[in-house]
Simulated assay, not measured.
Amino acid sequence: MSTSTRTPLQVTWSVWKALFLREALTRLLSGRAQWFWLLLEPAFHVVYMTFIFSVVRVRHVGGIDTAIWLMMGMLAFFMFKRTWGQLTNAIDANKSLFVYRQVKPIDTVLVRAALEGIIMLFVIIILLSGLALLGKEVQPTDPLRLIGALWGLWLLGTGLGLMTSVATELIPEIGKIINLITMPLMWISGVMIPLTSIPQPYRDWLLFNPVVHGIESARLGFAGYYHTFPELDESFLFKCALVSMFFGLALHRRFALRMMMQ
């Protein structure tokens, strides 16, 4: 009598599917109207910042409508920030599953990254559809550039999440440092302040932040006539993303057993 055996790839795929379903149910149904709060956070930021810009009579930024400028900046930033934030706590939230030998710490991180990317894509589509209903032009002039920018920001968030998920397990106090870093990140990434208005040499310092290049590239992909800074370099975003992915995967390989035993 022959017995069927599954390949390691089939086992991994089954684990990912089960983890994805578990994470999706937890992320969307863990609280009352949980899905609504996923939309409310970026929408609230856009509304109140649009109101502030309207009070000071700023109708356009870089040649595009202020609401569009803010919306694309917020959505691109949240693609990065939410991915990074959710991955940082992925291992701690799934420790009970490590009793199953098929489940590894890196599985929980990668599955959560995929889920967060999908959720943010739906959030982007819904909020842009809302702007369209308000009479705004939401047809991107360069869809491939827009998708590439969002992809790069997601990769960067995944890479940093792989690193910090290990770091916070080994040294819990690092989580507090990460929170301190992320607090001013929205302001120094050009989400709510046009970087073209920042004088030199301070702007050059801010350009060492790869998130800046991703956000500006997303805006440029949405509106090809957008006036961004001449130093924009999308390749810098992907270089930083690949470096962070490499170190994140290396840390998971090095400390996988230790994290499963804690």
Rank of each mutant, 00 (worst) to 15 (best):
V138R: 05
Q139T: 12
Q139C: 00
D142E: 09
P143I: 09
L144Q: 10
L144W: 15
R145P: 01
L146E: 05
A149P: 08
W151Q: 02
G152M: 00
L153A: 06
W154H: 12
L155K: 03
L156N: 03
G157E: 07
T158V: 14
T158F: 11
L160G: 07
L160S: 05
M163C: 14
S165T: 04
V166R: 12
E169D: 10
L170I: 15
I171M: 13
I171Y: 11
E173D: 15
I174P: 07
T182N: 14
T182W: 11
M183L: 15
M183K: 11
L185A: 10
L185F: 06
W187R: 01
S189Y: 05
V191P: 09
I193R: 02
P194I: 06
L195W: 04
T196D: 06
T196L: 03
S197P: 00
I198K: 11
Q200H: 09
Q200E: 15
Q200D: 13
P201V: 13
P201S: 14
W205L: 15
L206Y: 05
N209L: 12
P210S: 03
P210Q: 02
H213E: 03
H213W: 03
G214Y: 04
S217H: 03
S217I: 01
A218C: 08
R219E: 10
L220F: 13
F222T: 08
Y225S: 14
Y226D: 09
E231F: 02
L232I: 08
L232G: 01
L232W: 01
S235E: 05
F236W: 13
K239N: 05
L242W: 13
L242C: 11
